[in-house]
């Protein structure tokens, strides 16, 4: 089955992204296709490579990046939400004349249409949030 996941909260503050990660992993292990993981609201904060948790804690951002690399996961940060919260890729850096970018490997920034498309193209959409 084709599944999509929406993540509405950032890392560490709320369990939503942990739950979404565990769910996504279990879905892949069960042989399902993940069409897209869409990060919205504070969920876009899951996509900054500057996250540096203590060594004895999980690295939520790296975990998503690694899962993406292993399974070719499409991790999308909503552009409007990302701009508000300072998540920047190279394109956004150039467009908005910022002095750097911070997006983590495996993530990309795109429009809200990607969420609607995920809803249309997937058999199920599961929302994780606060």
């Amino acid at each position: 089955m084709k599944l999509s996941i929406q993540v509405n909260e950032g890392p560490y503050q709320h369990q939503a992204t942990d739950s979404a990660y565990n769910f996504t992993k279990a879905a892949i292990e069960a042989g399902h296709e993940i069409f897209r993981v869409f990060f919205y609201h504070d969920g876009v904060n899951n996509g900054t490579r500057y996250t540096t948790p203590p060594q004895d804690d999980r690295n939520i951002v790296d975990r998503w990046s690694e899962l993406s690399a292993e399974h070719d996961l499409d991790l999308v940060l909503c552009v409007a939400a990302a701009q508000r919260r300072g998540l920047v890729d190279e394109g956004e850096q150039e467009r908005n004349k910022k002095d750097g970018n911070n997006i983590a490997p495996g993530f990309r920034i795109s429009g809200l249409g990607q969420l609607i498309e995920a809803g249309i193209q997937s058999d199920r959409l599961v929302v994780f949030g606060d």
């Binding site: 609201h41 249409g113 609607i116 498309e117």
Partner: peptide
């Protein structure tokens, strides 16, 4: 919280998909 406003943004963008 911002949920109401950002939800409305999804609704407006989603309208273009003719669902």
């Amino acid at each position: 919280t911002i949920y109401a406003w950002e939800s409305l943004e999804v609704v407006l963008i989603g309208a273009a998909f003719e669902q």
